[in-house]
């Protein structure tokens, strides 16, 4: 009887543990599809990537379709090259698509905004390993302020560009 009770309580303990692990894995960590599923790679060259990091999201209209998996500097022209791993669920974007680095909220983290372009005859689809041609760099607040001050100074001397 006593042994029976011990085994019962240990069983309850084990079930509680499994429940806790499931809660942590599914409800708290929430494995997303893009981190595990099959992906294909696209590359994009930016002038300035701002605060973009590896694992930043790639979004189309707010929906996450992939992640940034690598950021490195091109050895020839010294511009940053960003590798985007897009889930194979979302294939066949036209090659006129553009990417820009955006910020979620005023102080939020930066992500890659993906704008699918129009597709008509003669426009091919983006395939694994392609470079995106149309890119917009991150807005760097210091540059903006600098430009703003420069323009102000320029208009005073009636010499603005």
């Amino acid at each position: 009887m006593n042994k029976h009770k011990t085994e019962l309580m240990v069983g309850v303990f084990v079930v509680l543990t499994v429940a806790a692990v499931l809660l942590l894995a599914l409800k708290v960590a929430n494995q997303t599809m893009t981190s595990s599923g099959d992906t294909y790679q696209l590359y994009a060259k930016f002038d300035n990537i701002g605060g973009l990091k590896e694992r930043s999201a790639v979004k189309v209209g707010g929906v996450t379709i992939g992640r940034v998996t690598d950021i490195h500097l091109d050895k020839e022209d010294y511009t940053p090259v960003v590798t985007l791993s897009i889930s194979t669920d979302y294939e066949g974007f036209p090659e006129t698509s553009s990417v820009s680095i955006l910020t979620s909220g005023l102080l939020g983290e930066q992500y890659v905004g993906f704008q699918p372009g129009f597709s008509f005859d003669g426009i091919e689809e983006l395939k694994d390993g392609d470079y995106l041609q149309d890119t917009k760099s991150a807005l760097v607040l210091e540059d903006l302020i600098g430009q703003f001050l420069f323009n102000r100074g320029g208009s005073d001397s009636k010499n603005d560009e």
């Binding site: 303990f13 806790a20 692990v21 942590l24």
Partner: peptide, 15 residues
């Protein structure tokens, strides 16, 4: 076996 199990329960209950 018990301590990692207890730690998981601790975190889950804490959340």
């Amino acid at each position: 076996f018990s301590m990692p199990a207890l730690a998981m329960i601790f975190s889950a209950v804490g959340i």
